[in-house]
């Protein structure tokens, strides 16, 4: 079954409205989960669980949102290193890291996630992963 990007967006919007208690019209493709929709770290787990249920696939830990990054190869002095950035880009092709690369403070990494990046993630996943 093929599902259009607009249909994915509508389902993602429903997930975020339920998980974050925001209004429909606040959820646009460019909305950032943290700074615009006020998601906190634990909301990411809630969003993962709800996306799995909404779309019928499994999301491995670290697949949608990054795992804790503690390896000094990837983080030094609170900043993501070039190696760390390369790893993030490789693992998360659904995310645009361009702005983050200019100011790669680890505390800012959650700000890269937009509604559009979730839609990209789901669309890629639906094309490649079998339903759970």
């Amino acid at each position: 079954m093929t599902i259009s990007r607009d249909e994915v967006l509508e389902k993602v919007r429903g997930v975020l409205v339920d998980a974050l208690g925001v209004d429909d019209d606040e959820v646009t493709p460019t909305s950032r989960l943290t700074t615009d929709l006020h998601a906190e770290s634990i909301d990411f787990l809630d969003i993962v669980f709800r996306l799995e249920k909404a779309f019928g696939f499994k999301i491995a830990q670290g697949e949608l949102f990054p795992d804790n990054i503690n390896d000094p190869k990837y983080v030094q002095d609170g900043k993501v290193t070039a190696d760390g950035l390369a790893l993030l880009k490789q693992r998360m092709p659904h995310v645009d890291f361009l702005a983050f690369a200019a100011d790669p403070r680890l505390e800012k990494v959650s700000e890269v996630f937009t509604v559009g990046s979730l839609v990209d993630f789901v669309s890629r996943k639906l094309q490649t992963a079998p339903a759970a």
């Binding site: 634990i42 809630d46 804790n68």
Partner: peptide, 11 residues
Amino acid sequence: IFSHVDKNRSG
């Protein structure tokens, strides 16, 4: 929702 705190908050 519950978190396994060692797995989610290492550090």
